[in-house]
């Protein structure tokens, strides 16, 4: 369904060139939820924006290929991409209402979006109301203004717009980070039902516990690179990358007596990434090889990919 091959994305800034995504490759199957887990600066959001072709102007895709249902996304014209956005791939943001007009009713903006994709006004309104109802937004709220909605309701509207045209892939970028815990659960339950309806979901999150609870597979990113990919059971029981192990140890566990561990040091400066393995300055096991040679992402067992010199193929 989605194939990303050897993707490199850079930002050109006044203070230097930032290697935001470096050599990322992975695939997604139809109807699966893949969680892309990483901290700030890991490249996870840049990856999402690249797939959506919504990168800011100072960003350049240096290399790589993105195939969505066989379509070579990076080769499409702006016009062709506009047609695909929303209908084949769509995105739910952390705060979707920064992109919506606060002065226009929710339904009007929804209708306009659908009409841009070729629907007439009557069928657009009908479809909008159906989509909103399916996410628990009643008709009365559909005709209100964005500021009249709570945070959770706004996110429901954003999800309704993302799924209205039945795309094959929905990218949810930290969809619950701005919400309170109880509402987070409600929204994640909703995203779960979308997935069960057959839509593939890419869940972008900093929260590895949330990823384990919700996703089928997990891809861990750090410093713009993929560190590990595996199904969630494997990530939980046999994480092989020291960074994944560190992230898991950093979760505060209910009912435990132990204060979680943190990973020493700070994320890398991607204007000037470390030589060798990008994680080596924070890795407890780093040796000479890690400091000089970049490891390859290798498949250690079926479906379990790791980028670490210490791991050898079974």
């Amino acid at each position: 369904m989605l194939i990303v091959e050897d993707l490199y994305v850079k930002y050109y800034t006044r203070r230097g060139t930032v290697s935001a995504v470096s050599g990322v490759s992975f695939t997604m199957q139809k109807g699966e939820m893949l969680a892309v887990v990483g901290e700030s600066g890991s490249g996870k959001s840049t990856l999402a924006l690249t797939i959506m072709r919504l990168l800011p102007r100072n960003a350049v895709v240096e290399r790589g290929r993105i195939l969505l249902d066989g379509i070579d996304v990076l080769k499409l014209s702006e016009d062709e991409m506009r047609r695909i956005r929303g209908s084949k791939v769509s995105m739910v943001l952390q705060d979707p209402f920064t992109t919506l007009d606060p002065l226009r009713r929710v339904i009007d903006q929804f209708i306009e979006f659908l009409m841009e994709h070729g629907l007439d006004r009557r069928s657009a309104e009908k479809l909008a109301l159906e989509a909103l109802e399916s996410v628990g937004i009643p008709k009365t709220l559909a005709y209100s203004y964005p500021h009249q909605l709570s945070g959770g309701q706004k996110q429901r509207v954003a999800i309704a717009m993302a799924i209205a045209l039945k795309p094959s892939l929905v990218i949810a970028d930290e969809p619950t980070t701005a919400l309170d815990v109880v509402v987070q659960k409600q929204i994640m339950d909703l995203i779960d039902t979308i997935k069960r309806g057959g839509t593939s979901v890419m869940l972008i999150t900093h929260d590895i516990a949330l990823a384990i609870e919700r996703a089928d597979r997990i891809m861990v990113m750090y410093g713009g690179e993929v560190m590990e990919i595996a199904d969630k059971g494997t990530i939980m029981s046999r994480p092989l990358h020291p960074y994944t192990q560190g992230l898991l140890a950093s979760i505060p566990r209910l009912g435990s007596d132990k204060i979680p561990e943190s990973i020493p040091g700070y994320p890398p400066d991607l204007r000037n990434p470390p030589k060798g393995c990008v994680f080596h300055p924070r890795c407890p096991y780093a040796d000479e090889r890690c400091r000089s040679i970049k490891p390859q992402l290798i498949e250690v067992e079926k479906g379990h990919w790791v980028k670490c010199h210490r791991v050898v193929k079974a």
Binding site: G152, D180, V181, K185, D207, A209, E213, R253, L254
Partner: peptide, 23 residues
């Protein structure tokens, strides 16, 4: 409900409570 909402909290065996709506 606060405890139920935490990812991976099932193992604790606390009664799951889901609240409607928002604060």
């Amino acid at each position: 409900a606060l405890i139920s909402a935490i990812p991976l909290s099932e193992e604790l065996g606390v009664e799951r409570v889901v609240l409607k709506g928002e604060i």
